[in-house]
Every structure is written in structure tokens, then in C-alpha cells.
């Protein structure tokens, strides 16, 4: 069987189709938000949130609640706190994120071991389980994805202004706090649905890599947005297909394809800069 036929064969599995839809959607929204988060120096917040999400998942599994429904509000609250903390607090932002993420990871582990036996499920949240997505989760992901994209397009211009120069935006009467809140809610939602696919440990790569890769080759805000979305989708599908063909973990495969893309873009950027 040729590689081409094998790839066609992928589409015959319904779990693969679900993985592609949900994963593509997450890759798309993560890359859009990633540009803003990276430029605003908030990218580590994504990492922190995913750990908080892990803790929330562990709690919800222990109590047999639906993981996503339980985790979303907790992560939104955490996003809120982290954005506040990184601005005005005695503990510096990066240190605060370190504290919060390791604490929630630890709490998650303890709760999991006390409620004994659900190890396998928790593992899937550590490293993701894109191939085990259920239909109800897919529908939830699609709804959230559409909301996030819609909100982002609607608020695109003010989000640019707030990202570029918060003080100026405030001075012209924009409600900066509102946009930051919107941003933190969107980030939290993206992280929670992304965790299912990429896992706690790998989700921040979906946010950070495409934005950084795009910034190597273009210097306009809008084109950075567009290119990072394209890069993110290409890397996601390349990673997914590679993981299917050579039987490696999907999440890791997607991260590595993002890494390769970043290196290629850096080289292109380097040559362009010299010309």
C-alpha cells in the first residue's frame, strides 16, 4: 500500500475524522490567540492554565463529573487571576505562574491517587488523547471554537490596540479591562479544549510556536495572524498524519512538526534579513 493510500485510509476511521475536526479547530484558535499572548508576554500563562486545567480534570474525575464542564469555569477563574497577578502584585508574574501550575499539578496527582484507580484517564490528560474524542466533546469543541473565532474577529481592532499600547488605548477611552477579560476567557476556553488533544504538557506549544514562526517572516500584525493560522493548521495535519503513518504519539508529533516549521521559518527569516 502506498503512503497516499494509507492517508486516504485514515479518513475511513470516524475517530480520525473527529480528531481532525477538533484538532484543526483548536490549532486555529490557539494560533490566533497565541499571537496576542506572545506579544503581550502572556505566553506562559497558557502553560500555567493548562496545569490548572489538569488539577480541575483530576477533581472532576474523582467526583465522576463531566471533565470539560467542570474544568472550564475553574480555568476561567484562574486565567483571570493570572492576568491580574502578572500586572500588580508583589510576586512577579512568572514566579506566580510557576507556583500556581506546580501546585495544581500536585493537587491533581494527590486527588487522583486518593480516589484510586482512574490513572489511565488522567494520563490521557497529561499527554492528550486526540484519537479518543467522543462525539459530545466534538460538538462542544465546535461550538466553543465558533464562539472564540467570532468574538476575536469582532474585537480584532481593539485587541490590536490593547496589545500594542495599553496606555494609549486606555487614554482614548477603550475599556482595556474588558478586553483583557475577554482575552483571558478565550484563552482559558482554548486551553481546556486543547488539553484533550495535546495534553497538559504540550498545549502551550500550539499557542506559542505558530506565532513565533510567523513573526520570523513577516512584520505586519494582520499577516502575522494569517500566517500563524496557516502554519498552525499545516503543522497540525502534518503531525497527525506522521503520527498515523509511523505510529508515534500524536501530541508529540504535532509539537515536533511545529518545531521543524519554526526552524525553517527562522532560516528563511535570516536569509531575508540579509538580503
Amino acid at each position: 500500500m502506498s503512503i497516499f493510500e494509507e492517508i486516504i485510509g485514515m479518513f475511513s476511521y470516524s475517530f480520525m475524522i473527529r480528531a481532525m475536526i477538533v484538532g484543526g479547530l483548536v490549532a486555529l484558535i490557539a494560533s490566533i490567540l497565541g499571537v496576542v499572548l506572545v506579544l503581550k508576554r502572556y505566553s506562559m500563562i497558557g502553560d500555567g492554565l493548562s496545569h490548572v486545567g489538569f488539577g480541575a480534570m483530576a477533581i472532576s474525575l474523582a467526583f465522576n463529573e463531566a471533565p470539560l464542564v467542570f474544568a472550564i469555569p475553574i480555568v476561567i477563574v484562574a486565567a483571570f487571576l493570572l492576568l491580574r497577578v502578572s500586572e500588580n502584585s508583589k510576586i512577579k508574574g512568572d514566579a506566580a505562574i510557576g507556583l500556581i501550575s506546580s501546585s495544581s499539578l500536585a493537587i491533581g496527582m494527590i486527588i487522583n491517587s486518593l480516589s484510586n484507580g482512574t490513572n489511565i484517564d488522567l494520563n490521557s490528560y497529561m499527554f492528550g488523547s486526540i484519537l479518543a474524542i467522543e462525539k459530545s466533546e466534538m460538538i462542544l469543541c465546535i461550538i466553543l471554537g465558533v464562539i472564540i473565532i467570532g468574538v476575536f474577529i469582532y474585537f480584532y481592532n481593539p485587541i490590536f490596540a490593547v496589545t500594542f499600547d495599553e496606555n494609549f488605548a486606555k487614554a482614548t477611552g477603550l475599556k482595556v479591562e474588558v478586553y483583557k477579560t475577554v482575552l483571558s476567557v478565550l484563552t482559558a476556553l482554548t486551553i481546556v479544549i486543547g488539553m484533550r488533544i495535546m495534553g497538559t504538557l504540550l498545549i502551550s506549544s500550539l499557542i506559542i510556536f505558530p506565532a513565533l514562526s510567523a513573526m520570523r517572516i513577516t512584520k505586519k500584525f494582520k499577516s502575522v495572524m494569517i500566517i500563524s493560522v496557516i502554519i498552525s493548521l499545516v503543522c497540525f495535519f502534518a503531525g497527525l498524519i506522521a503520527s498515523y503513518l509511523i505510529e508515534i504519539p500524536t501530541g508529540a508529533s504535532i509539537v515536533v512538526s511545529n518545531l521543524i516549521m519554526f526552524i525553517v521559518m527562522s532560516i528563511i527569516g535570516l536569509f531575508r534579513g540579509k538580503m
Partner: peptide, 16 residues
Amino acid sequence: DFPASVYEVVISGCLK
């Protein structure tokens, strides 16, 4: 190192 064109920066002044 913010990737934004001059035009994008200027027109953001119109937001209010």
C-alpha cells in the same frame, strides 16, 4: 519587536 505596520499603528488611533 512588535510586528505591526505603520498604518496599523496609526489607524488604531481612530478606535475611540
